[in-house]
Computed example of a mutant assay.
Amino acid sequence: MAEKRANQSMAYRREPERYYIDGNTARRLNEQPETPKRRNKAVQSRPKQRTVQHKKRVSVFDLKYTLFLVTSVGITLAACFMYLHSSSVLKKNEQAVTALQSQLQTVQEQNNSLKESLNKTIDLDEIYQIATGRLGMVYAGEDQVIYYDSSNNDYIRQYESIPGGK
């Protein structure tokens, strides 16, 4: 194992005009370093102007993009606030409806109890005896009842005589 390490450290053994490689990459023979090419001053000034114009384009694009994002976030926040507001209004209305329904139920119960107490105090047989005995009232006969069709069943206001006949 020590022998293998020694070979690895001596991975590149130089012999005249040849390299021996003990690895997976090889060096290029007669390689020379790249030198940057020189440009004249006119050519060097153009890219700077283009860069400035490019920066202006990028800044305009960035401004439009930023405005779009701000507008999008603003619309989203407004929609969220509108949803929360309508949700709270709906909840308040539901609570008000529930309160009114319970109030209606108690009023109906009171109304029914008052109606029953009034019905208990009224004696229909006594009213019949007073109407027929003291006041001389009688039931209408069959020939005295007139039937007719009305378009409105709830309320009748008589402006002319009722048509005769059965």
Rank of each mutant, 00 (worst) to 15 (best):
K48V: 14
L63N: 09
R50P: 03
H85Q: 13
L84N: 06
T66D: 12
T106C: 04
Q103A: 10
Q105M: 06
K115V: 11
S88W: 02
L100P: 01
D62Q: 13
K56Q: 13
V70Y: 00
Q53T: 13
L84G: 06
M82P: 00
E109P: 00
L90D: 05
Y83C: 07
F81E: 08
Q103T: 07
V97I: 14
N112P: 01
S72F: 08
L118A: 06
H54T: 14
V60T: 11
S102T: 05
H54G: 15
H85S: 15
T106H: 02
Q53H: 11
S59N: 14
K92P: 00
E94P: 01
K64W: 06
A79K: 03
L67H: 04
L84Y: 04
S117A: 10
N119D: 11
L90K: 06
K92H: 04
S102F: 03
T106F: 02
T98D: 10
Q110H: 05
V52C: 02
L67Q: 11
A99T: 06
S86V: 15
L90G: 11
T51P: 00
K55Q: 12
L63S: 14
T98P: 00
S86L: 14
L100G: 03
A96E: 02
S72I: 13
C80Q: 10
L114K: 01
K91Y: 05
T98L: 14
T71W: 02
Y65I: 12
S117G: 01
T51R: 14
Q108C: 08
S117E: 03
S87Q: 12
N112I: 12
V60G: 08
C80D: 08
Q49Y: 07
F68H: 07
L67N: 11
D62C: 11
A79D: 05
T71H: 02
T121C: 06
V58M: 11
S102Y: 02
N111H: 05
Q95G: 08
C80G: 11
A78L: 12
G74I: 03
